[in-house]
Every structure is written in C-alpha cells, then in structure tokens.
C-alpha cells in the first residue's frame, strides 16, 4: 500500500509539470482569477488547520468535547441517524434472500437539498420565463456584441485599431520577423513557405490579382476573397498583425524563390 502512495506522489508531480506548461498559455486575467481562488483556498486551509490545532491541544478534554460539541450537535441535527447500537429498533421485519432493511429517517440535510433544489428550479423558471420574455440566450448575445462594438469604436478613435485607410508599410526588422512568423503559421500552406505560390498565387512577383501595395494587401488579408478560397482574417488576426504580415509580404518582392508559380493578375504600379 505504501508503494502506491509513492506512485501517486510521483504522478501528481508529473501532472503539476504539465499544468505548469498550460498555465503559461493562460493570460493574465485568468492567472489573476487563479491566484484569487488559490488565496481563498489557502486561507480556508489555514483556518481549518488552526481549528484542528485548537481542538487537539485541549489537554483536559481529550475527546475535544468543548470545541467539537457545536459541530457534533450540528451534525446530529443534520443527519438524525439512529445510532448503530439502537439499530434493532428500526429493523424492518422482512428479508429478501437474507437482505434486511433499516428504516432510518431521511436525513434533514437531504430534505433541505431535495426541496431546496425544487424551489430553486421554480424560481429559475419564473425568473426567466414568466417575469421575463424567455429570450434568454439571444439577449445575452446581443448584450455581449453591443459591448464589444462600443469597445471597438473607442479603439478605432484612439488610433489603436488600424484599418485599410490608415495602414502603412513598416520595414523594421522586428515587425518583419513577426510578419514572417505569422506568414509561416497561417499563409504558407496556401502561398508556399517563401511566398512562391501553391494553392494561392505567387506573392513575390509584380503581379497582383487584387491590387498590390500595403493598403490593398491589407484589405485582401482582412476581408479575404471568399469566392476564390482566400479566407478573411479579420476575426483571427488583429490589425497590427495583419500590418506585419502585409509588410513582410511586401519584403518578399523580387526574391524569386524556386518553384515560383506563374504570375497571375495585373502588373502593379504604385
């Protein structure tokens, strides 16, 4: 049995290792929540340990009657179970293949739970479907979307949120390398690892189907060209990222990668 405990400990350690890697993926907000919960749990555990210490340090009261008395009374009140010594009194006079039945009272905590949940259910239904119009989820959704729209408006006003009018091509190395990462992750499967074109067109030549230049490229990335299979990225990449990707694509001009796809579209002049 001991070896089992050791095994368990080892495995919990492994779990913790994996959990760590996951926590890193979480953002600050969730971390914040996790920290708060952990704080509460810790406080509860400390309180419990203190209580235990007090209970068991009571020397003249080896059974801890003084401290445990309220707890014992509460437990008795909640369970109302017939003590095992008196069980004969509630043993029913029948048996099924040797199985007998006691007739213990239904524990009060059970009844509280049972009737409590029923009352809760009634309140829930009344609340949403009688005193309100019952359009629970569309209302929730519209509120969520409305709030997001307000936030977006604000961000556009402050200039934090670029769009196809305001976007500019950037050329510093950090942005280009970010753009490259984004490109490899999202675009390369259709446009090739070096932009040579695959399912999608070649991005390194002079020819553009939907217009060259940072504004057009940004626009194509943002809205996509669904009928041709280019997907819209505006819900997936934030504008800064689309700007980085567009800038990176511009930097591919003239690189002439191997296996370049035939030019498509029109020759672009700035």
């Amino acid at each position: 049995m001991k070896s089992n405990k050791i095994l368990l400990m080892i495995f919990s350690l492994i779990f913790f290792f994996f959990e760590q890697t996951n926590l890193l993926a979480a953002n600050e907000e969730t971390l914040d929540k996790v920290m708060k919960t952990m704080l509460v749990v810790t406080l509860v555990v400390i309180a419990f340990v203190l209580w235990l210490a007090v209970v068991y340090s009571e020397k003249n009261d080896s059974e801890g009657k003084t401290f445990k008395a309220p707890l014992a009374a509460f437990k008795k009140y909640l369970t109302r179970t017939t003590p095992i010594e008196k069980e004969q009194e509630i043993l029913l006079h029948h048996d099924y293949d040797g199985i007998q039945e006691l007739d213990n009272r239904i524990p009060p905590w059970f009844s509280i739970l049972f009737y409590g949940t029923i009352i809760w259910g009634a309140i829930y239904l009344l609340n949403y479907h009688v005193f309100d119009d019952g359009q629970v989820q569309t209302k929730e959704y519209n509120l969520e979307v409305h709030q997001a729209a307000l936030e977006r408006e604000f961000l556009i006003k402050t200039g934090a949120f670029l769009n196809e009018e305001t976007v500019t091509a950037l050329s510093d190395a950090a942005v280009l390398s970010e753009g490259k990462d984004i490109f490899i992750k999202n675009c390369a499967s259709c446009h090739g690892q070096s932009g040579e074109g695959l399912v999608g067109p070649n991005l390194t030549d002079d020819f553009w189907i939907h217009g060259g230049g940072v504004k057009n490229i940004f626009k194509t990335i943002k809205y996509g060209v669904p009928q041709k299979g280019m997907i819209s990225w505006q819900t997936q990449l934030d504008p800064k990222k689309m700007q980085a990707a567009a800038s990176f694509i511009l930097s591919l001009y003239g690189t002439n990668p191997p296996n370049g796809k035939q030019p498509e579209g029109e020759k672009w002049k700035e």
Binding site: N104, G121, Y124, Y128, H129, Q135, V136
Partner: peptide, 28 residues
Amino acid sequence: PDWAQSLGTVFSIMLLAPSWGGMLNGLL
C-alpha cells in the same frame, strides 16, 4: 428553444438529491 433548455437546467439541478439518495443508501 429557450424554454426547453431551461427545463433541462432546472430538472438537472433537482436531480442532485435523488441521485445522492442512492449514494447515501449505498455508503451508509
């Protein structure tokens, strides 16, 4: 429809005690 979803939710909550009745009778 929302009303059916709500019924699902409230009856699931109400199910807690009856289920635990079985557990109690087993453990006790």
